[in-house]
Design a protein around this nucleic acid. Structure first.
Length: 187
DNA sequence: ATTCAACACTTTT
DNA sequence: AAAAGTGTTGAAT
């Protein structure tokens, strides 16, 4: 369908994202690895709603799978593998809206919603996000919550950088964060 | 550039 | 119930 680092110029950054409530999903979580413009990615779906998106970096696929399954296991512990290539194409290149759903603790949910509002081509600082969620004194906790974003790229936690201008961290490796940002800002 | 303490929230013991 | 661990920050070195 497409190869790693292929078609970067056709990437659909301005994807419309529909956030559905968690009660819209049930049953097993389907998961699979597919190629993406940022390397191999792990896609997790429940009721055909995207509930997880992760990228391969220096950890093994098995480690990443375990980590994501653990994170999502509040909803179900039943996982089934699936060919996710078509879904990957829809996520990264198609101009159709994509349904996502997430549930976290109180802080996480607040933070993830705020992340969704960072416009394409812009960045925010960790303290900026903390202000937005009325947790201005809890920057470190907010940063932790940002790092736990289960749907990488679509929930653009890669747009959050340090106040000093340095990149800060990224759960899936700084290479990928750098990649995403440089592709966005050159638009 | 590197260290250090303070922040507050979650997770782990 | 207490301690440990954070994708930070600002100040001091």
């Amino acid at each position: 369908m497409f190869g790693v680092n292929d078609n970067l110029n056709d990437l659909n950054f301005n994807k419309k994202i529909v956030v559905l409530p968690t009660d819209q999903r049930s049953g097993p979580i389907y998961f699979g690895w597919s190629a993406s413009p940022f390397g191999q990615c792990l896609i997790l779906l429940q009721s055909d709603i995207l509930v997880g998106l992760a990228f391969k970096h220096n950890r093994t696929k098995h480690q990443i799978e375990t980590e994501m399954k653990n994170q999502l296991s509040a909803n179900t512990t039943h996982f089934k593998s699936l060919n996710t290539d078509k879904k990957a194409y829809n996520i990264f290149f198609n101009h159709i809206p994509i349904n996502i759903s997430f549930d976290g603790n109180q802080l996480q949910s607040k933070v993830w919603k705020v992340l969704l509002a960072i416009p394409l081509g812009e960045t925010a600082t960790y303290s900026h996000i903390a202000n937005k969620t009325k947790n201005s004194q809890a920057v470190r906790a907010v940063a932790t919550a940002i790092g736990q974003n289960p749907i990488a790229w679509l929930i653009p936690c890669h747009r959050v950088i340090r106040k000093s201008g340095s990149l800060g961290g990224y759960r899936w490796g700084l290479e990928i964060k750098r990649n995403m940002l440089s592709n966005e800002t050159k638009i």
